[in-house]
Nucleic acid binder design. Sequence first.
DNA 1: AAATTAGCTTGCATTATGCAAGCTGTTTTG
DNA 2: CAAAACAGCTTGCATAATGCAAGCTAATTT
Lengths: 158, 158
Amino acid sequence: MNMKRASGNRVCSVARTLEILGDRWIFLILREAFFGVRNYDQFLSNLGIATNILSSRLKTLVAHGIMEKQQDRKDARRIRYRLTEKGLDLYTIVLAFMQWGDRWLADADGPPLELYHKGCGRRLEPVMNCAACGKTVHAHEVGYVEKKPFQTPKKSTT
Amino acid sequence: MNMKRASGNRVCSVARTLEILGDRWIFLILREAFFGVRNYDQFLSNLGIATNILSSRLKTLVAHGIMEKQQDRKDARRIRYRLTEKGLDLYTIVLAFMQWGDRWLADADGPPLELYHKGCGRRLEPVMNCAACGKTVHAHEVGYVEKKPFQTPKKSTT
DNA sequence: AAATTAGCTTGCATTATGCAAGCTGTTTTG
DNA sequence: CAAAACAGCTTGCATAATGCAAGCTAATTT
């Protein structure tokens, strides 16, 4: 959580996002949350995380509006941590992690977890598409333009 | 780079991926690489990263086959670090970071960097689609099945 | 009333990070 | 062709983050 300017000098949403999310545990907590985990002790036992780290990470997630706390009516000790809209919107990142791992790090048994798309009922293999033309986007097909000009590169990608 | 079992007890590609990539600097290096940066000193000046950290991160990226080193023929001092296929395939993660940041962290001026899709020439807004049915996937529509059963939750998402 | 549970906080040893300095092999310069 | 500059590192040391164990508080359960 310390980094003068986590970006270096390029102004970029990647850097901004990483200033909040740039921590293994944060993503693992989010993964659990996407899989339905809601309470401190479930995160704790599922992740094997230290208690101080867990509470500090939950705190930053709440502080950034990614999760919100609510009391359980039936048990006042229990706090439910749930994803806000802002937090739910992070599922693309979690899916992207999972897919890359499935493709490049899977062992012989194949991916340990299979996703399915409730909409169509089939196995979900997420792909990145261009919202404008609908086609799948590959790394080489991404170009960029800097809105606030800076020192570094010019155009192109890869 | 230390974590008994970065996953906790859930077997998951997210955890495996994070064991390699779970570091801010790694992602920022990857971002630079996607934007065309190739050399040590460019990474160094663009990121404002410490030299020991940069070389250690580049080393792990190379060790995991995400980047590869090659000598520059014209200048033997110069080493080019370039993304392998495995590394290029991480662009979905970088795009997902950028998009979330654009949506939730942008200031009044809008996103600092605009991507375009070389295929269609239009502004690229990446969306996650289901490869099977082609539709855009939303967080609530993702279900999962654990292949190697473990202790934790059951089904559903969110 | 005593024990248990959920969700924390605190203290302390270990590990990672950031900074500055230095080192090694190439070019480039005068 | 010697001196300076450059690219890509490594090393040492101070500071910050992490992990572990223990303890603490308020709300249940027994």
